[in-house]
Design a binder for these strands. Sequence first.
DNA 1: TTGCATGATTGTGG
DNA 2: CCACAATCATGCAA
Length: 294
Amino acid sequence: MRRAQEEDPPDPQLMRLDNMLLAEGVSGPEKGGGAAAATIAAAAASGAIVDHSVENSEYRAKLAQIRRIYHTELEKYEQACNEFTTHVMNLLREQSRTRPISPKEIERMVGIIHRKFSTIQMQLKQSTCEAVMILRSRFLDARRKRRNFSKQATEVLNEYFYSHLSNPYPSEEAKEELAKKCSITMSQGVRTTFTVSQVSNWFGNKRIRYKKNIGKFQEEANLYAAKTAVTAAHAVAAAVQNSQTNSPATPNSGFQMKDEDFQLDSSDSKSTLLSSIFTGAYPTACFQPDGRIQ
DNA sequence: TTGCATGATTGTGG
DNA sequence: CCACAATCATGCAA
């Protein structure tokens, strides 16, 4: 009775809960996850890749389970509320024989009962919302589902990165190309798609991390530089037969990012590392950062 | 179990 | 919208 005013206004929180349940497809008509599918589609469109076959169905199954529980509970409450109301009405009717009972009193009693049950409903809605949120975060937050790319995919990306060290900003088309290549090489595992945004992410991360600690990446850089150099050398060898150039490797210089301050000083250890590689296996290759043979 | 590697997201600036 | 920087959350090896 005391808390009559608590529930009287249309309660913004309840509306929020209702809206969310509706949006998630928990309340509302039972259909094969129209809203749920939309949610997933939206997540996928925004760059978060959801593995379609397995994850999607699992998500839907769980959501359907939540929906089932929600509806049965709701129905139970509804029923209980009605039963209780009629019961109280009968009692009042009984009492009306011994004392006068005003319609106002009846109304008041009914109101109290309904409010009581609506708070219970509210709790149900709240916990359902929580369950859905947890489910969503479990299944739709890509960060929780991070998988390392396959070795081959990383290889492809690294090859491009180190062969375009002077300007490691692939164009849109280049990104698409890379994404395609990576998709092909990512045969094993669940993931079958490699998107442009993943390529962008990768290059973004790579650039910043390379720049942050160039030393750490030297070995890798030399590896890929040598790799591209040797392939390029083969290509060029077909065209240019007199490869008399035998200068020691002029290491990757002039790594330019958008920031001016980002520049490789081509002075230190890498020269020795490079020459060790080049004197061994690729003595004739004199490469540029962007992979061109000089 | 811990520390580092790494893919994705968020916030900021151009 | 893009790149960057910082940060998150997970994967993985020591």
